[in-house]
Simulated assay, not measured.
Amino acid sequence: MKSMMSKLVVTCALVALLISAGMARAAEVNVYSYRQPFLIKPLFDAFTKETGIKVNTVYAKKGLVERLKSEGANSPADLIFTVDIGRLTDAANAEVTQAVNSDILNANIPASYRAGNGHWFGLTTRARVIAASKERVKEGEISTYEELADPKWKGRICTRSGKHAYMVALTASMIAHHGEAKAKEWLTGLKANLARKPQGNDRAQAKAIKEGQCDLALLNHYYMAKMMRNEEQSAWADAIYLVFPNQGDRGTHLNVSGMALTKSSPNKAHAIKLMEFLSSDLAQRMYAEENSEYPLKQGVPWSGLLASWGKFKADVVALDQVASNRANAIKMADEVQYDAK
């Protein structure tokens, strides 16, 4: 009997050890990210310090949705991080995400910046602003996106490709506000005003203004902050000032960086805990400071630089509505041959 009791005690101890080991192994979250690791690592480190849950990251410039689809139910990924409403909705439409119903997330993230069905949540916002030459464009000379199509700017505007995600989102927002016919008229007018064939990234547009190739450009606001901190690019930043468009009516177009819970998440509870942490005051402040973006949680202070640029009115059209117009926006860019100049 004593021997049997000893064996039972040992067996129970082994079972407890295995359970404990299993729990330890489960105390992690796996993230597939389009955001570069150095931008989000401080946030994950803070989460691990607070909860003991480790965060593993796989970074890629593209192809993460396709990877999730090919991995299927065996995917180790719990969350997907991305930097545009298009990629967030692409993931949801590919059916590689699942809904999250969290009172914390719903309280912290405004409804305009999360999916109505809970399949994605914004983390920070990025304003699509007009960059204007300090030398050649007087302050107040342009104040709306619509004015970019005014013939007075013929041969004076630079942009990315009309089918780049940032341009697509802006065009989609124009469709949301004005309808397809008016949006197409606007895009046609903008194309007619281009100084060169659409090319390069946002910083390349500021460089082109510095070099006198154009006088106006579209860029995400945080690139201004990045250029200001870069020795070579600071001259590009010095050559421009930022215009937050449409302050007299609907407000400036915003896009998001965001996250979604994967359909196959093996660590769902921990993943949702990370999502909730990232919507907290601490993480929102860290995220905004690290990336020079605007926090989504109300009451979280902006970085000193962003605060120095002043408050602005933001377009509050639901990003779900913008996303629903993306296919038409891409088609429209083809129809007006935006990239063919």
Results as ranks from 00 to 15, higher is better:
Ser264Thr: 09
Gln205Asp: 04
Gln213Cys: 04
Ile40Ala: 14
Thr252Phe: 00
Thr252Gln: 03
Met227Cys: 15
Ala169Phe: 14
Ile157Glu: 08
Gly22Ala: 01
Leu88Arg: 07
Leu242Ser: 11
Ser75Ile: 05
Tyr32Gly: 15
Thr82Phe: 04
Asn74Gln: 15
Leu43Trp: 00
Pro245Glu: 03
Ala24Pro: 15
Tyr59Ile: 01
Ala13Lys: 00
Glu71Met: 12
Thr97Asp: 02
Gly162Trp: 02
Leu306Glu: 12
Leu190Tyr: 03
Asp238Val: 08
Ala165Asp: 09
Asn255Gly: 15
Trp120Asp: 10
Gly189Phe: 06
Arg126Ala: 11
Phe44Ser: 00
Arg136Val: 02
His270Ile: 04
Ser265Gln: 15
Glu141Ala: 09
Ala165Lys: 12
Ala208Val: 00
Gly189His: 07
Asp90Ile: 00
Arg160Gln: 05
Ser292Gly: 00
Ala235Tyr: 13
Lys191Tyr: 04
Gly52Glu: 06
Ile157Arg: 09
Asp249Ile: 05
Ala329Ser: 02
Gly155Asn: 10
Ile142Asn: 05
Gln213Lys: 15
Met227Asn: 09
Ala323Glu: 13
Ser324Lys: 14
Ile240Pro: 09
Ala169Gly: 12
Met1Val: 13
Leu43Gln: 02
Pro245Trp: 05
Thr159Gly: 10
Asn30Lys: 09
Gly118Asn: 01
Glu293Gln: 07
Ala314Val: 02
Ser6Tyr: 04
Gln205Ile: 00
Ser279Val: 15
Arg25Met: 13
Lys134Pro: 01
Pro76Ser: 09
Ala46Asp: 02
Lys152Leu: 04
Arg156Met: 11
Ala16Met: 13
His178Ala: 06
Gly140Glu: 05
Ser143His: 10
Phe44Glu: 00
Gly258Asn: 06
Ala165Pro: 03
Gly86His: 09
Thr89Ala: 08
Ala204Ser: 14
Leu17Met: 12
Ala176Met: 05
Arg203Thr: 02
Pro301Val: 01
Ala269Asp: 15
Asp281Ala: 07
Lys49Phe: 11
Arg87Leu: 14
Leu68Ala: 07
Thr89Tyr: 12
Val10Met: 09
Ala307Lys: 07
Leu194Asn: 09
Gly179Leu: 04
Val322Trp: 08
Lys138Phe: 10
Gln199Ser: 02
Leu261Ile: 01
Asn246Cys: 01
Lys138Gln: 13
Asp334Leu: 03
Val83Leu: 14
Thr252Leu: 01
Val100Gln: 02
His177Phe: 04
Thr159Ala: 00
Ile130Met: 00
Gly140Met: 06
Trp120Pro: 05
Gly212Met: 03
Asp320Ile: 10
Arg87Tyr: 15
His177Tyr: 06
Met275Pro: 03
Leu68Arg: 00
Pro266Gly: 06
Val58Leu: 09
Thr262Pro: 07
Val300Ser: 08
Ser75Val: 02
Phe277Ile: 08
Val31Lys: 08
Tyr222Val: 14
Ser324Arg: 07
Ile157Asn: 11
His270Arg: 05
Ala131Glu: 06
Ala176Cys: 12
Arg114Trp: 05
Asn246Leu: 10
Gly155Ser: 12
Phe47Asn: 03
Gly162Lys: 05
Pro295Ala: 11
Glu293Tyr: 06
Phe277Gly: 07
Leu306Pro: 13
Met23Ile: 13
Gly251Leu: 08
Arg156Ser: 04
Val29Arg: 02
Leu8His: 14
Val15Trp: 10
Ile85Arg: 08
Arg203Ser: 14
Ala91Thr: 09
Ala127Gln: 15
Leu68Ile: 08
Glu28Tyr: 01
Ser264Asp: 10
